[in-house]
């Protein structure tokens, strides 16, 4: 009997399987890399309506985070300051600067400044700032070195893994409560060995890893 199929079809299944594996693997790898929050969110740095520089205010001038973000110790929500907070200084400093025109206008007319939201968790996640800030987790653990940011960008992926990694092992992210807003402070330099373990035991730090911690 002559060959019904040409010889090269003998290899076809092998080629097909290899291509499928490579393609599928490539697709998966592509998704894994490009479509996870680590890629899509980290580095997000939208242009804000007012060129507020954290590097100047929090870094150079050393204003504490809580001067503006007043609700962070009391509420789940860390609020943006009202324009009146800006005007506390800026009714004297850079009084007529054109870059602050929107701020002055807002403080006078009551129209809010439309800041672009950078850090946003999905609605089904109920994160509480007060529970973290009051228990030794610094702003820097999640928001990065904000005091060096000229324009704030998204520093950490804020995926569920990111939260769970710390909940599983909070020690690296704990620090004395008076250093929580000192973003430049390096715990490795200043804290004695075993400090975090002792804090976890003394303060009964036991972050929940159950769904009820964040999902209601």
């Amino acid at each position: 009997m002559s060959d019904v199929f040409p010889k090269w079809t003998n290899r076809l299944p092998l080629y097909a399987a290899t291509t499928a594996i490579l393609f599928g693997g490539g697709l998966m790898a592509g998704f894994w890399y490009y479509f996870t929050p680590k890629y899509t969110r980290v580095g997000y740095q939208p242009i804000q309506p007012v060129a507020f520089s954290h590097a100047t205010h929090a870094g150079q001038l050393g204003i504490d985070c809580r001067y503006c973000h007043t609700g962070v110790e009391k509420s789940w929500y860390s609020n943006l300051p009202a324009s009146s907070t800006c005007m506390n200084c800026h009714n004297q400093v850079l009084k007529d600067d054109p870059r602050l025109a929107l701020v002055r206008e807002s403080a006078q007319t009551g129209t809010p400044i439309p800041w672009v939201q950078i850090h946003k968790l999905p609605d089904y996640v109920y994160f509480n700032h007060a529970a973290h800030v009051n228990r030794g987790v610094s702003c820097v653990s999640c928001h990065g070195q904000v005091q060096t940011m000229e324009e704030v960008f998204h520093a950490q992926p804020f995926s569920m893994t990111f939260c769970l990694d710390c909940h599983r092992n909070p020690a690296p992210n704990l620090r004395p409560l008076d250093k929580v807003t000192d973003l430049a402070w390096d715990p490795h330099q200043h804290l004695p060995a075993g400090w975090a373990e002792k804090a976890i035991s003394d303060w009964k730090v036991k972050p929940s890893q159950h769904c009820s911690a964040c999902h209601r």
């Binding site: 007043t70 609020n79 943006l80 300051p81 009202a82 324009s83 009146s84 907070t85 807002s106 403080a107 007319t109 009551g110 129209t111 809010p112 400044i113 439309p114 800041w115 672009v116 939201q117 946003k120």
Partner: peptide
């Protein structure tokens, strides 16, 4: 998305 804070706390 935008955040609209108060103009006066």
């Amino acid at each position: 998305e935008r955040i609209m804070p108060h103009s006066k706390m």
